[in-house]
Design a protein around this nucleic acid. Structure first.
Length: 443
RNA sequence: GGAGAGAUGCCCGAGCUGGCCGAAGGGGCGCGACUGGAAAUCGCGUGUGGGACCACAAGUUCCACCGUGGGUUCGAAUCCCACUCUCUCCGCCA
């Protein structure tokens, strides 16, 4: 959320920023309501002041209840003014919640992906002396990624990992969680996967992108589109201690995204899934350090990719590509060897004080100063299925196997993901009467 | 699902027979005194938001805010209604 004062003082800037993002805004309407609210609140103030004075005089002058008719009249006026004010403020708030964040000055102009600015590249793209297979073909052949199974259960846009595929997903999650909690100072969280309306409003998903979120109507709860929602809301309505900033959290959760709305059509190349697991890094930082911290988050994400040995590039998103709540976004895009293109696995975002205002997340600077809004950062990603796809494509061998990156091998049984025809199938049903038994007594 | 208790400032916690209550007390924090330094002790200070005067400073001042939304009243943290949330006990399921 932007502050009313800021919009009032910079209407054309706000208007242009919104238009640049492709999320236009009713600025005239706002200005009208805003000035009306200003006038009204000042007259209401005066009336109320008068009322209090007279009312107190009455109480001091004795116990006989002689209420003058003019006092009653005043009370009616106060009531009417308050009522109108309430209505105005409600309208203003609703309007305000639809104003997008202002892009940082360093963000390049432009509309589409092609206008994004490449910042740097890392790694050597693998060279093959055979034609590499796209991930979906190889994964299907290896029996680790079941496209039909997901569809059967929940429809298009859902996938199902099997055997070594499922294990690979787990390995990636564990590897990154371990990395961020032991090599860095992120605190790992396992948050609820459902959130209420207020939480989604704080992060900026509501009210504008409501149709992109799955809803459990009867309970007024929503499936989180990202762990960003529960993690950010953790400190809603709190005043954080300045000394303990930044607060850094990491979580690996499923994310749920409806096909409607801004997410568009799904396809294999772009991999727009309706459910996927993702590592999320969230930070609460002091305003003056958010810019530097954003760079730090990007390098933290890069570290994971470097350890995985996946070539990638970093791009700075142009204005038109920025999400509603973001002021600045670095995209982390990983090289896909078969398709010969980059695929975004992570967006590192600076939300500045936008979410903090919505969620009233503040910090108190030293010496009992006035509280200010924190800045929030989010590295929305890395998304596990996309990383898995990248590993499958980039690490494939001539024999149609996948050589798992070294850092993941300790989490796997076998450094190679092999085709069932070369090895005993990991997909055959488990042996009956094996060592694993599920108890039936309910304990 | 049944029964009960509660929601007050950064935290804890009074107030809840309606009127200087923005709110006692304590903790914490800040400043100062004492000390070689510290602890302990003592003194002072310390809510948030919006507006006015004014230099968007200091200061003065007004209004709002005691879970949320309504209501009663000249006047409500205090009374009434609805809602939300939290906790405890029981039940149910893991």
């Amino acid at each position: 959320m932007l502050s009313r004062k800021f919009i009032r003082e910079n209407p054309q800037l706000v208007e242009e920023a919104a238009r640049g993002k492709g999320q236009p805004v009713e600025i005239e309407q706002f200005l009208k309501l805003d000035s009306r609210e200003g006038e009204l609140s000042s007259t209401a103030n005066q009336l109320r002041h008068q009322q209090r004075l007279l009312s107190q005089q009455g109480s001091l002058s004795g116990h006989e209840r002689r209420i003058s008719p003019s006092l009653k009249q005043l009370a009616r006026q106060v009531k009417a003014a308050k009522e109108e004010l309430r209505g105005l403020q409600k309208q203003l708030k609703e309007l305000l919640l639809r104003f997008p964040n202002i892009p940082d000055p360093s963000v390049p102009q432009g509309r589409g992906k092609k206008d994004n600015l490449q910042v740097r590249e890392w790694g050597t793209k693998p060279q093959f002396d055979f034609t590499p297979l796209p991930y979906w073909e190889l994964a299907e052949r290896l029996g680790i990624w079941d496209f039909r199974g997901g569809v059967k259960v929940a429809g298009r846009g859902f996938v199902l990992f099997k055997g070594a595929g499922s294990k690979l997903e787990r390995a990636l999650a564990d590897f990154m969680l371990d990395l961020y909690t032991s090599q860095h100072d992120y605190v790992e969280l396992s948050p609820p996967l459902l959130a209420d309306q207020e939480s989604l409003t704080c992060t900026g998903h509501f009210p504008r992108w409501q149709q992109g979120v799955y809803c459990c109507k009867d309970d007024g709860l929503f499936l989180i589109p990202s762990a960003e929602v529960p993690l950010t809301n953790l400190h809603r309505d709190q005043i954080l201690d300045a000394q303990s900033l930044p607060f850094s959290y990491v979580a690996c959760t499923p994310c749920f995204r409806r096909p409607e709305g801004s997410w568009g059509r799904e396809n294999r190349q772009e991999m727009r899934l309706h459910q996927f697991r993702k590592i999320e890094l969230i930070e609460f930082v002091a305003p003056e350090s958010s810019s530097a911290q954003l760079d730090q988050v990007v390098t933290d994400v890069e570290e994971a990719l470097q350890l995985l040995g996946l070539p990638y590039r970093i791009v700075l998103d142009c204005v038109g590509q920025l999400s509603f709540a973001s002021a600045k976004v670095y995209g982390v895009e990983v090289w896909m060897a078969a398709s010969g293109s980059y695929l975004r696995v992570c967006s590192c975002r600076n939300y500045t004080d936008f979410q903090a205002r919505r969620g009233n997340i503040r910090f108190r600077p030293n010496r009992g100063g006035r509280p200010g809004f924190v800045h929030t950062l989010g590295a929305s990603g890395p998304a596990l299925p996309r990383l898995m796809a990248a590993i499958i494509e980039n690490c494939q061998t001539a024999t149609g196997e996948v050589l798992v990156p070294k850092v993941l091998q300790r989490y796997m049984n076998d450094p190679f993901v092999k085709s069932p025809k070369y090895s005993p199938s990991p997909l055959s049903p488990p042996h009956r009467g094996g060592e694993m038994r599920f108890s039936t007594d309910g304990s």
